[in-house]
C-alpha cells in the first residue's frame, strides 16, 4: 500500500497546494470558475511568469491566495485600480482580476466602469453568486428582485445590475457570460480574453447554496438545474436582453469581441513626445 503514488492534479503546479484546503463551502461555484481560469492560463500559452492575479475582498477575492503566481489580495473593491497600476507600470504583464460581484460592482463599481472606458488591457473575471457570501448572505447589486437575503428578509425591492450591459455601455471590448455548468466555455472565453489586448469581462453565474440558495428555497441541485434548463446560449445577443430572470430564461454566450486601442496605446500615441517611441 505504501508504494501507492500520491495523486497529482494536473493543475497542481498553478495552485498553492500548501494552502489547501481552501475556504470555499461545499456546493460553492467559485472553485469551478477558478479551475477554469487556471486551465485557460495554461492552454493560452501566455508567459505565466509575467502573469499576475489581483483580487479584492470576499469569497471570490480569495482566488489570488490560491494561485501559484504573483498574486495580490488587495482592499475591498480596489482590485481594478491596483491592477491598472500594475499594467500601466509594466505593460508586459498579463493582469487578471478575479473577484466577486459585490467587490467589483458595488463597492468597486466606479473603478470597473472607468477601467472599461479607458480600455486598460485587463481580464476581469467576476464570479456572480447574487449575494455577499463571505459576510453571511446580504443583498448585493446583483441580487434578483424579491430574493431573500439577510438584509432583505421580506425580499429584495431593488433592480439588479445587468452586468454585460453595464460593461458594454462602459466600453469593454470583450464580454461573455456563462454559468459554472459551462466550464469549457468559461475556459475558452478566458483564454480569448487573455490573448486579447483590451478590457475583457467574463461573468460567471455561480451557486452560493449556503447563503443564497438556502434562503430562497433553492437546493444546490435546483440551482444547477436552473443553469441547465432555464438558460439559452445566444452569442452576440443585444445587451438589453441580458437581464437575469430565470423565469424568462437567462441568456449566456459571447456578446462582444471588438478591437480598439488600449489605454497604453493611446497614451504612447497622444502623450509621449513624437521622437520618444522611435
Amino acid at each position: 500500500m505504501s508504494h501507492q503514488k500520491k495523486a497529482v492534479h494536473p493543475l497542481d503546479d498553478l495552485i498553492r497546494t500548501d494552502r489547501i484546503p481552501h475556504i470555499w463551502c461545499p456546493g460553492c461555484g467559485i472553485g469551478t470558475v477558478f479551475s477554469s481560469t487556471l486551465i485557460a492560463m495554461k492552454e493560452s500559452g501566455i508567459d505565466l511568469t509575467k502573469t499576475v492575479m489581483v483580487s479584492g475582498i470576499g469569497c471570490s477575492g480569495r482566488g489570488a491566495g490560491y494561485v501559484n503566481l504573483d498574486s495580490f489580495h488587495t482592499t475591498h473593491g480596489r482590485a481594478i485600480p491596483f491592477a491598472t497600476g500594475l499594467k500601466l507600470a509594466n505593460p508586459e504583464l498579463n493582469v487578471i482580476v478575479f473577484s466577486g460581484d459585490g467587490d467589483i460592482f458595488a463597492i468597486g463599481g466606479n473603478h470597473f466602469i472607468h477601467a472599461a472606458r479607458r480600455n486598460v488591457d485587463l481580464t476581469i473575471i467576476c464570479v456572480n453568486n447574487f449575494n455577499y457570501g463571505m459576510t453571511g448572505g446580504q443583498v448585493a447589486a446583483t441580487t434578483p428582485y424579491n430574493a431573500k437575503t439577510t438584509t432583505t428578509p421580506s425580499g429584495n425591492p431593488e433592480r439588479p445590475f445587468n452586468l454585460p450591459m453595464l460593461s458594454y455601455a462602459s466600453g469593454a471590448t470583450y464580454i461573455s457570460r456563462w454559468t459554472i455548468l459551462h466550464a469549457r466555455d468559461i475556459s475558452d472565453s478566458i483564454q480569448e480574453a487573455l490573448l486579447k489586448r483590451g478590457f475583457s469581462f467574463i461573468e460567471v453565474l455561480a451557486p452560493c447554496p449556503i447563503n443564497y440558495g438556502r434562503r430562497n428555497k433553492e437546493k444546490p441541485f435546483d440551482t444547477l438545474k436552473l443553469y441547465q434548463e432555464n438558460t439559452i446560449i445566444k452569442n452576440k445577443a443585444h445587451p438589453f436582453e441580458l437581464d437575469i430572470d430565470f423565469e424568462r430564461g437567462v441568456v449566456l454566450g459571447k456578446f462582444l469581441d471588438i478591437n480598439r486601442p488600449t489605454w497604453t496605446d493611446m497614451y504612447n500615441k497622444t502623450c509621449r513626445p513624437k521622437d520618444f517611441m522611435e
Binding site: V54, F72, T74, T75, G77, R78, P81, F82, A83, T84, G85, L86, K87, L88, A89, N90, L93, N110, H111, H114, W263, Y267, C271, R272, P273, F276
Partner: peptide, 27 residues
C-alpha cells in the same frame, strides 16, 4: 511621459492610491 514615466488621472483618490500601489508592486 517625456522621461519614460506614466501619468494617469484616476476616477477618485481611492483609485489614485490603489494605482500607485499596483505600479510600485511592478517595480
Amino acid at each position: 511621459p517625456e522621461v519614460g514615466g506614466t501619468f494617469i488621472q484616476m476616477e477618485d483618490e481611492i483609485a489614485a492610491i490603489a494605482s500607485i500601489l499596483g505600479a510600485s508592486s511592478a517595480g
